[in-house]
Design a protein around this nucleic acid. Structure first.
Lengths: 179, 179
DNA sequence: ACCCACATGTAAGGAGTTACATGATTAC
DNA sequence: GTAATCATGTAACTCCTTACATGTGGGT
């Protein structure tokens, strides 16, 4: 279960990063799929360093700022990540508040629900636009289609995001028609 | 934030239920969207009873078994649920392990990843079949299309599930082609 | 004046998982 | 005899969210 550590390793397998970098990438690149707060990143990095999954590559100091600690993945970390990647797990629960709210739509006035649906739809349209831009950016970076290129893997995942947002938007439209 | 209490109220708004009933319904009807364990259900029911959102409708005793406590929603509970339903919230994070694993596919041998993808695809196909059966069952129960019928709301949510599983399966197939 | 970006971290608490405890009954 | 179903509940634990704390420079 404990997947946050694999989320960190996933990013570190590609390039050395600081805790702050990881936090930023989580909230943009694989953004809406995974999120972490600083409270989880820093203690987890320490733990993982203690277990030999990552090591401190070096530190940087820019003027007045706190020391920036760059971590890199170790061979043991890479192996642990590969093992986890091939491990099988159960299907996840979706756990989306709005699905529950839709389940309650029979309780409220149709016009009030419609306003709510429109709002949710708008949020997902914004995400869709961000994903589409991301895929275009990534595709430009990838010259040859190669399944061993990390960028190709990233594109696949973001494409899932695009399909998901499209489905969500279409579903919202179907709900609006029913009201 | 997204608290379990509204999930309980959502079910109780439709019919009086015991904690055990709620647990069962969570793991079948709105199943893979939400889940609860008994550790959460029973304390939360007590809390909600104390706050006047639900009340004990009565108890049943079948032979040797523990007393079955049936709860029903109160007017205050209904109002709280309606308010929450119309409240706006942010978009949720998807948080699916397999998306992270796919993000790591560049690290592993294509044939090993393919086996993993096939396995995941199979799990989602099983879910899809369950949802399709559920929708058919619900549609048969609904005679007139009416947006104030709770069954209509349920169908909408399960239809989301169907679309989601289909998208997941198609995405798996696309991954397999890329390998 | 005030907030944001940078970069590390801690604290408090709520949410969620896994396992356990009771105890008779039915099914393999 | 082993497990599952019914029905309640507790215990121990991990995970995740929200907020705080530090401290300077740059933008509005």
């Amino acid at each position: 279960m404990s997947s946050i550590r694999y989320a960190l390793l996933t990013l570190l397998a590609r390039e050395p990063l600081s805790g702050y970098d990881i936090k930023l990438q989580m909230n943009s690149r694989i953004g809406p799929f995974w999120k972490v707060g600083s409270n989880q990143v820093y203690p987890e990095l320490s733990k993982m360093e203690g277990e030999g999954l990552i090591r401190l590559q070096g530190t940087e100091q820019h003027a007045y700022r706190p020391v920036r600690k760059l971590y890199e993945i170790t061979e043991a970390g890479r192996e642990a990540l590969i093992q986890w990647t091939l491990e099988r797990g159960g299907v996840e629960t979706v756990r989306d508040d709005f699905l529950l709210k839709a389940y309650n739509s029979w309780l409220v006035k149709p016009e009030e629900m419609a306003a709510q649906i429109e709002e949710v739809k708008k949020q997902h349209e914004e995400r869709l636009a961000a994903y589409v831009a991301k895929v275009e950016e990534l595709t430009a970076m990838l010259d040859a289609p190669d399944s061993h290129d990390p960028i190709a893997s990233t594109i696949s995942v973001v494409e899932f995001g695009i399909q998901y947002e499209r489905l969500y938007i279409e579903w919202c439209e179907k709900l609006l028609k029913k009201e």
